[in-house]
Amino acid sequence: MLNIDRLEKSFGVVTALDRCSLEVKSGQMLGLLGPNGAGKTTLMRGVFGLIRPDAGEITWHGTPIDAATRRRFGYMPEERGLYPKLEVRWQLIYLGRLHGMSDHDAGDAADRWLAEFLLSDRATSRVNELSHGNQQRVQLIAALIHEPELVILDEPFAGLDPIASEFMAGVLADLASRGTAILFSSHQLDVVEDLCREVVIMHRGRVVLEGAIDELRAASPVRYVEATGENTSWVAGLPGSEVVHRGSGRARVRLGHGAGLEAVAGVLSGAGITRFVYEPPPLSEVFRDVATS
């Protein structure tokens, strides 16, 4: 288990991390959210010794992280982190060997991953000859080739088309199911919501919200009601609501300070409703509330 305990880091007058704490368990996929400048990248770099924290501690299974431990981790930086003029397979083997693999094992792993990512025919291409999406795939292989116990990915879905995103999400989900601890940051909250059960939301260097996504959403006082029926006159029966959408026979409203399910059901009953949804706000709204608070 990765344990980050009250980590602090300042760059001059800018506080990047302010008593920041979180945990990632083996087999857990934890989404790290936060607006730009929240400190997510600084936190990730701290795990790899690329910054020296002013205070706090980072441990892996209860032990401070040393060079040998770090070689069992995988990292995918936000921007492309490969040698652009080196061949794909050569560089994957090199990275695998840096992480302690034998030449033979690294070669086998490179071939296996390239096949899985449909990149076998690009094994001898230079990285700068690949499309952005394929470079991202190679980047992910570079982080995974040595079968790391912990994988940290900084914006792994940035710039990917929906198909590539789905593919990468599938790979990560598979890894987590096999016991790998995964921490990743992303601004694509729909992907995070699909992939993770738990998230951590950072703001101004602090963890301001953490927990299971369902619980975080449920903890919000906001509720949404969406109903389909003969008409939408029921909207007027929910004072203080904010109409999100209103069309022929279907409407969606936001209840700012909540209205119990029983009260909503009371309004909707007798209004000719054939289908209705009563739900907490999406993760994106929870995130926005935190980011603008």
Partner: peptide, 13 residues
């Protein structure tokens, strides 16, 4: 510039 340093500095000092 390519941030490859960040990638390999996890494995080599």
């Amino acid at each position: 510039a390519n941030r490859v340093a960040e990638l390999i500095l996890g494995a080599i000092s």
